[in-house]
């Protein structure tokens, strides 16, 4: 397979990465999905997780840690709008640990039921990520 899928990873602050790759795996809220060239048009929200880029033309194999957002895929292009995205190399156990601690504190401070559910879910994702690291 020679076709590559073009992709952009965009944070609110700037365009993080624009490249093309053999495959990009995106952590959708309903489960991970891999995007290859010719993917059907799809819009999905993201959960905290890892974007896995395989065979990028310039970036090679690369992993990005994202904290929610959404992704839009169509046959020729994938656009990830990430709330917060960090290259996996710059995420270490200590920062993750700190974030988990912050989220735990948020959970204690959460006022209503829906907030609590949302934060608990986030915490869950973060813990998963820690075990994946």
């Amino acid at each position: 397979m020679t076709d590559k899928i073009a992709f952009d990873i965009v944070s609110p602050e700037r365009l993080l990465l624009s490249d093309e790759a053999d495959m990009v795996t995106v952590p959708g809220s309903e489960g991970d999905f891999g995007v290859l060239a010719g993917h059907m048009p799809l819009i999905s929200t993201l959960r905290p997780g890892v974007i896995d880029i395989r065979g990028g033309s310039e970036s090679g194999d690369l992993r990005f840690f994202v904290l929610g957002g959404f992704a839009e895929a169509n046959p020729s292009k994938l656009t990830v709008l990430a709330e917060e995205a960090l290259p996996m190399t710059s995420v270490d156990a200590a920062t993750l640990e700190q974030r988990i601690k912050n989220t735990e504190e948020d959970l204690v401070l959460a006022k209503n039921e829906s907030d609590r559910a949302r934060i608990a879910e986030q915490l869950d994702h973060l813990r998963q990520l820690r075990s994946a690291l």
């Binding site: 048009p41 799809l42 999905s44 929200t45 959404f70 839009e72 169509n74 046959p75």
Partner: peptide
Amino acid sequence: LVGPQGNVYEYEPDEAAILADLLPR
């Protein structure tokens, strides 16, 4: 929203859930 080939997008989860997620953002 239509794709480059004129096909309509699929939404995951459904449209209302995505909208509810996007509006605060």
